[in-house]
Design a protein around this nucleic acid. Structure first.
Lengths: 162, 162
DNA sequence: GAATTTATGTCAGTGTTGTTGACATAATAT
DNA sequence: ATATTATGTCAACAACACTGACATAAATTC
């Protein structure tokens, strides 16, 4: 007969690992809900939101910059980017040093829309931060960063510390 | 001229809110990568994974149980569930008390496949937990739970504390 | 017993987002 | 002069979500 041994790694048991997996699923499910609802009223979707977001955060970024950040294919990006440019949410300027590059910027219209979309997620996250408190928030960042692929952590750090 | 006032809510500034939004995006992006790769070799996708996962976690659950947990439409669920049954990953028994219900269970084949898929996410989460430590993990849970819609938190709690 | 509600299934159509692969162009680098 | 790079474009396809309508069988209510 086996005795239950006390051990210090209680947070690494199957149960706790499942909890992380499930909370990630449920949190992400709801996290995307508010912007998705706004987007559903336009001809845009979640992919457009991501492009708006990251162009807003990194004005002057290029197509290949977005590709490596979003990790989708050129064709997927090209489609949504084209629609955003066509509808006047994003402008492109050719690169100063390398004229093949297209430097991407939000127009005023793009900024306004991004702001509206972000507001819903900002409110949700702010409320969660408030309820959980600063120490919990630090832990939240720490674990999430370590869930990211090891090779990608530098890129992510550069992004979030901007 | 405005002076910078010290305040205790540093973790609620725009910068920290953006950090949460971005980490959630990047972590979830990579979190789904390993199972997606395995699934790509079969005719299944992420939706099948979710169904396998939650049926495995809640043996004997019903179609409506899954619908409210996953928050997708009947038609979306019906399609993937049908394929999983057809291919012998899930069996259904009619309910004992209510014979309209279909109680869902993983077959041995289903269990084996779920285990394989889960292993990749379990390893990733275990590694992240280890690197971040138990206090961080507690914070991670706390914030994620509060990101979930308020009305859904009870359901989620019931699920993760099973 | 009749009427309603519930649990589930199914069909047809649509839209977004991802994929692959092939090919094109212009600019930069060697 | 040639190769590489940054980007664009076209066609085709698959997964997964949606809506709306209709069907059936079982349970519940009047």
């Amino acid at each position: 007969m086996q005795r239950k041994l006390p051990h210090s790694n209680l947070y690494l048991r199957e149960e706790e690992l499942r909890r992380g997996v499930e909370l990630l699923y449920f949190a992400y499910r709801d996290f995307t809900r508010d912007p998705d609802e706004i987007l559903a009223e336009s001809r845009f979707g979640r992919a457009h939101h991501r492009v708006l977001y990251f162009v807003g955060r990194n004005p002057g970024t290029t197509v290949s910059g977005l590709l490596s950040l979003l990790r989708i294919t050129k064709q997927s990006l090209s489609r949504v980017l084209g629609q955003l440019v066509e509808d006047g949410y994003i402008t492109q300027e050719s690169g100063l040093e390398d004229r093949r590059q297209r430097l991407l910027y939000l127009t005023d219209k793009g900024q306004a829309f991004e702001k509206e979309l972000f507001a819903t997620q900002r409110d949700r996250v702010a409320e969660a931060y408030k309820r959980a408190g600063p120490e919990a928030v630090a832990g939240f960042w720490e674990v999430l960063l370590n869930i990211v692929d090891a090779e990608e952590r530098d890129t992510v750090l550069r992004q979030i510390e901007k």
